[in-house]
Structures are given as structure tokens and as C-alpha cells.
Amino acid sequence: MSEYPQASGAVDAVSPDELADRLRAGDPVSVLDVRNRADSEAWPLSGETVTTYHVPYYRFVEANVNGTVDSLGKEVREALDEPIVVICGRGEASAYVAELLEETGVDAANLDGGMRGWARVYHAVEVDVDSDATVVQYQRPSSGCLAYLVVSGAEALVIDPLRAFTDRYVADAREEGAELVAAVDTHVHADHVSGVRELARETDAEVLLPRGARERGLAFDARLVEAGDAVAVGGAELDAVALPGHTTEMLGFELADLLFAGDTVFLESVARPDLEAGDEGAPDAARRLHDTLSTLDDDRRIAPAHFSDAARPDESGAYVARMSDLRERLRALSLSREEFVEYVLDDMPPRPANYEEIITVNLGLDRVDDDESFELELGPNNCAATRAVDAD
């Protein structure tokens, strides 16, 4: 039974996919967040065109008891342009608040499923590539995670898949007339539960991981890949390249001029170096990351594993950029080695929620079911170094 007073069901609802479409279109969106302040600040529903106002749910309960809902509705109307989307964790408290606001004359709708519903939004965009292969970029706006489907002939592989969306990769490959033959992780992820093993169980896909994952404690069977290896899919080949820094084992995969770069460099930032190395080892990891970034050719097009609200997609809607453009855009890429270390480590965000447990799960040292997996990774993208977002 819900802990929240039940809304009548008459209030309008906005689906997470509908909200995502509005944000991609650049429409202004007014958000009333009724979660507690800590949750609201730690994991906002954010976007370039989003304006958010926070009023905790308990204030609406008190106002309803005291007969002061009209006053609270006036406060919200003065803070936000209408219509207003009300959000909470699961869509229950927000439904109740949206109904109270509607009764005061505020044009309000509830985000169906709340932030957990928002976490299930997964958008796909085709990426231009100088190859006969088809490349699809998957975008999860709630956490900024990016994954990729590469299709060539009757075969497909997926790079950095999320466990929450394994069925989607299989279905999309089949829509392209292909079957998944491989599921690849660029590194041991710390922000989401990998889908490589689930895909292997659901299909005949082979699991591919960097060889260095074994040194980190990998506890399940996989094909171990190292720099210089080629991964075949249909008539295409992806060449593995070493990209140490964010983690010691990080590999990128080259397809024509496109580099699937994992958590190395993003369109608005560079990777944080402390999730494997810890605070003590972060400076040396940052030096390795600087050295890695220095070797990337200007003509290389970067297909990263994350994006944030500060990132701007290309004309197709994909988060891909040429390395030369990133060098012009990101201050971090113009710094000397030691300047880079200081800059990156100076103001990093909190580490991803549950990152140590997620790493343990992704190494196969622990098991979680689908519901536990989904709960573990709820939250924002914290795999980037915050200060590096400050572009020139």
C-alpha cells in the first residue's frame, strides 16, 4: 500500500518518453521537484531548457491540512511558467501534488513513474561513419550513459551495454536483419551494471573485455582483448587501442575514423581518474590519462560513453565530435601534464552512487537481480571531472 495519499487519477500525466522528446526539441520545461532537498540536489531532472523549483512534498501535505494550498499554488505559479511537470521518485507523491495544484488553477501534470520512470528512457540515434557498417548510439538522459550497436551484414555487436536495456539491443539488431555476435565493455564500469553477461545468456553473443580486467579480479569467462587485436563483426573490423587513465585496462575500438572511446574524453569534459585508483593513486592515473589524450589524432572522431547537459549533439542528434574540435573546446586538453593533474583533481564531483558495489558486480564477484541492478545505478553521471567542463 502506498505511503502517499491517493490522487483521484484525474490529473494529467506526462510520460518520460514524451518529456524526453520535448527536451530534445529544445522546448522550455518547468519542473516542480517535490523530493527531499538532498535527493533533488543529488539527482536533478536537468537540461538546457529546464527550469526547476523545489518544494518538498510534506509542505503540500501540511498546506492541505491547514487549508493553505492556494497560497502554495501561488508560490509555485510565481516561480515557474506554466504548464508545470511535477516530479518525485516514483510518481506517487507528485501525482498527489499535481492534483492539489490543479485544484488551485495551476496547469500541472505528473511525470509518470517519477525519476525511476525517467531512468528507463533510452533514445537511439544513427551515427555517421565512413564504413559500410551501421552504428547506432543509445542515449540514457537520466544518467548520461551512451552505448553503441554496430551492425555489418547479418552480424551485430554492442559496446558498453547496460543490463537494464539488453532486450532493446537484441530487438534493434534483429530489426536490422542481424544477430548479436558480441557484447563488448571498454572497461570495468563503475556507474552502471554491465549487460554483457545478460546478453550472452539471452543470445549466442561472445563476451569481450579488456585483458587488464583479469588483473582487477574478473571472475567469469570472457574473451580477453588487448591493444592491437581486431574484433570482427560481419564484414567490418574494430581495432582495439589502449586508453589508460580513467582505468588501467581501458580500451577503445576504432571503426574507420570513429573511436569508441569509453570513459576517456567526452564532448564537455575528460574522465575522472580516481574510481579505480582511489585518492592516493589518482594523480598517477591522471598523468596516464594526459598521456593517452596527447596521442589521439586530431582527425579522430570521438564516440564517448557519457554525455551531460553541457554537451551538444551534432546535427544528427548524436554525441560525437572530432578530437581537433575538443582540443579547441576543452581547456584541460591544452594544459601541460602537471597542470592537467591539478586541474582535473581540483574539483571532482562525488563518486557515482554505489560505485564499489557496481564494480564488484561487473567483475562477477557478486550477483544482483534485475530490480537490484536497476536500483544500484540510479543517479546522475559522475564519471567526468567537473572542472574540465569549463571550456575555452
Score class of each variant (00 low, 15 high):
residue 187 H to P: 13
residue 134 T to V: 11
residue 155 E to I: 11
residue 198 E to R: 11
residue 193 V to L: 05
residue 176 E to C: 06
residue 198 E to N: 10
residue 180 L to Q: 07
residue 149 L to K: 10
residue 134 T to P: 02
residue 152 S to T: 05
residue 152 S to Q: 10
residue 139 Q to W: 01
residue 159 I to Q: 07
residue 142 S to L: 07
residue 189 H to T: 15
residue 196 V to H: 07
residue 172 D to P: 11
residue 136 V to N: 00
residue 213 A to Q: 13
residue 175 E to W: 08
residue 192 H to W: 15
residue 127 V to A: 01
residue 140 R to I: 06
residue 174 R to D: 01
residue 163 R to G: 06
residue 190 A to H: 15
residue 190 A to Y: 09
residue 156 A to S: 01
residue 194 S to C: 01
residue 190 A to C: 12
residue 163 R to D: 00
residue 202 E to Q: 15
residue 187 H to A: 15
residue 133 A to L: 06
residue 190 A to D: 08
residue 136 V to G: 05
residue 135 V to I: 00
residue 159 I to C: 09
residue 150 V to P: 09
residue 202 E to V: 08
residue 170 V to T: 09
residue 158 V to D: 13
residue 214 R to F: 11
residue 133 A to H: 03
residue 216 R to V: 08
residue 194 S to G: 08
residue 150 V to D: 06
residue 214 R to T: 03
residue 152 S to P: 01
residue 157 L to M: 00
residue 202 E to R: 15
residue 139 Q to V: 02
residue 149 L to S: 04
residue 151 V to K: 05
residue 144 G to S: 02
residue 206 E to V: 12
residue 183 A to Y: 12
residue 178 A to E: 07
residue 157 L to D: 01
residue 141 P to S: 14
residue 212 G to L: 09
residue 132 D to K: 01
residue 205 A to P: 09
residue 199 L to N: 10
residue 182 A to S: 15
residue 166 T to P: 02
residue 201 R to A: 15
residue 215 E to Y: 12
residue 169 Y to V: 02
residue 126 E to W: 03
residue 202 E to G: 14
residue 150 V to G: 03
residue 160 D to M: 03
residue 152 S to R: 08
residue 191 D to A: 15
residue 206 E to L: 14
residue 182 A to E: 06
residue 205 A to N: 02
residue 189 H to S: 15
residue 205 A to G: 05
residue 164 A to F: 07
residue 167 D to S: 10
residue 193 V to Q: 09
residue 208 L to Q: 08
residue 149 L to R: 00
residue 137 Q to C: 07
residue 190 A to W: 10
residue 191 D to N: 15
residue 175 E to P: 00
residue 196 V to N: 13
residue 200 A to Y: 02
residue 138 Y to S: 01
residue 155 E to H: 03
residue 171 A to Q: 11
residue 166 T to C: 12
residue 173 A to S: 10
residue 125 V to F: 01
residue 173 A to Q: 11
residue 199 L to A: 11
residue 180 L to I: 04
residue 194 S to V: 02
residue 211 R to G: 14
residue 161 P to M: 03
residue 195 G to T: 13
residue 179 E to Y: 11
residue 129 V to S: 04
residue 155 E to Y: 02
residue 125 V to G: 04
residue 201 R to Y: 10
residue 130 D to R: 08
residue 140 R to Q: 13
residue 134 T to E: 05
residue 203 T to P: 11
residue 208 L to R: 12
residue 159 I to S: 12
residue 183 A to F: 07
residue 152 S to G: 06
residue 174 R to T: 06
residue 139 Q to T: 02
residue 141 P to W: 04
residue 201 R to M: 13
residue 131 S to K: 06
residue 168 R to Q: 05
residue 204 D to Y: 14
residue 174 R to Q: 09
residue 178 A to C: 10
residue 131 S to N: 07
residue 146 L to D: 03
residue 160 D to A: 13
residue 136 V to A: 06
residue 161 P to I: 03
residue 173 A to E: 10
residue 186 T to W: 12
residue 179 E to R: 13
residue 185 D to T: 14
residue 192 H to Q: 14
residue 153 G to Y: 01
residue 182 A to Q: 12
residue 155 E to T: 07
residue 163 R to L: 13
residue 200 A to V: 11
residue 176 E to Q: 06
residue 216 R to N: 12
residue 178 A to G: 02
residue 139 Q to A: 00
residue 188 V to L: 14
residue 145 C to I: 10
